[in-house]
């Protein structure tokens, strides 16, 4: 906090604390000066994402609402181009709604694999830059991240840190902290579930030729739907609490809302696509599916630059902290 006041940017950004913080807001609750350290930490995290972003301009773009149309334009144009080439811009596929007929899985996979490789590299780049900064500012003790990897991953899987927030609740602020653990857990595993679903579908198609859409009773389908519902449910709670707890947890920023909304809209459009498909309303189903893809692109490809980057930076910080001891 004092580093920020003094303008010691490098020192503040190169510290693992900003990402070790899970925003339990205990500090804000107890701060004798009403300085709202939790909000500062959140702002620092936002700032550090754009600071370490590779390439930098994408980091800037995600943090500024005026670039939002531009960011959406990219996937939209790509998908429009493919659709135009397929001729689906003028005529939707006939008959039963099958999304792969609208936009073949292979095309999607190709686009996503290409884009995600780039974004994966970018994320790695950001992570490495942060790691180096931490090593510079906080010193190194010679240990690599290797030893700490397993315990850190376990900690993430168990959401141990969030539990710590819950361990010492403070009076009226209890509601805020109690939800943090459960809600984040739901989003986390919900999202993982969706990733597993998508991967399974891919494997199903390519390894076994098991074409989509799969029946609703299929375990993978069930997993997908349940996960989706978990994510939506948790996101609604998150959104509500962000408004309700803004006194305690600090005001939410543009990037908070952007990430929350994109994730919510991605999941929602996914469900809508499914529903419209089942309701056999091609006029609604295909456009929604298109939008869904847009959101998925936004969500996944911009990972290193949005709040989603916390998967990279927080893991890095936890690894760094764990490998120090």
């Amino acid at each position: 906090m004092v580093w920020v006041q003094w303008g010691l940017k490098e020192r503040a950004l190169g510290n693992s604390s900003i990402w070790l913080c899970h925003q339990c807001a205990t500090c804000t609750a107890y701060c004798p000066r009403d300085a709202k350290p939790a909000s500062l930490m959140a702002a620092l995290r936002d700032y550090s994402i754009s600071h370490y972003a590779v390439p930098g301009f994408l980091g800037q773009a995600l943090g500024d609402p005026k670039y939002l149309p531009l960011l959406f334009a990219l996937p939209t144009l790509i998908f429009l181009a493919v659709l135009a080439w397929l001729g689906h811009l003028t005529a939707l596929p006939e008959g039963r709604i099958v999304y792969s007929r609208f936009l073949p899985i292979l095309y999607i996979e190709a686009i996503f694999v290409a884009a995600m490789t780039l974004s994966g590299l970018a994320a790695l780049g950001g992570g490495v830059r942060y790691w180096q900064a931490m090593s510079r500012q906080m010193g190194r003790n010679g240990h690599g991240p290797g030893q700490a990897l397993v315990p850190t991953l376990l900690a993430i899987l168990r959401h141990r840190k969030f539990r710590e927030c819950e361990a010492h609740p403070v009076g009226i602020r209890e509601t805020y902290k109690r939800h943090l653990h459960t809600t984040h857990l739901a989003v986390f595993y919900g999202f993982l579930g969706l990733v597993v679903t998508t991967t399974s579908v891919g494997i199903g198609i390519y390894a076994f030729g098991y074409l989509t859409p799969w029946p609703l009773w299929h375990p993978v389908k069930i997993l997908g739907n349940v996960s989706g519902l978990a994510v939506i449910g948790a996101l609604v709670v998150f959104g509500y609490r962000r408004i309700a707890d803004k006194e305690q947890a600090g005001k939410s920023t543009y990037s908070d809302w952007l990430f929350l909304d994109i994730l919510l809209l991605t999941t929602l459009t996914g469900f809508l696509s499914e529903l419209f498909r089942l309701a056999d309303l091609p006029g609604l189903a295909y456009p929604i599916y298109f939008i869904h893809l847009d959101f998925v692109f936004f969500l996944l490809v911009y990972i290193p630059y949005s709040k989603f980057a916390h998967v990279v930076y927080r893991t890095a910080a936890m690894l760094h902290a764990a490998s120090e001891t």
């Binding site: 609750a29 107890y30 701060c31 004798p32 000066r33 009403d34």
Partner: peptide, 10 residues
């Protein structure tokens, strides 16, 4: 020290 002093909450 300052248990409840120099503290906007107390």
């Amino acid at each position: 020290q300052c248990a409840g002093s120099r503290d906007v909450n107390h």
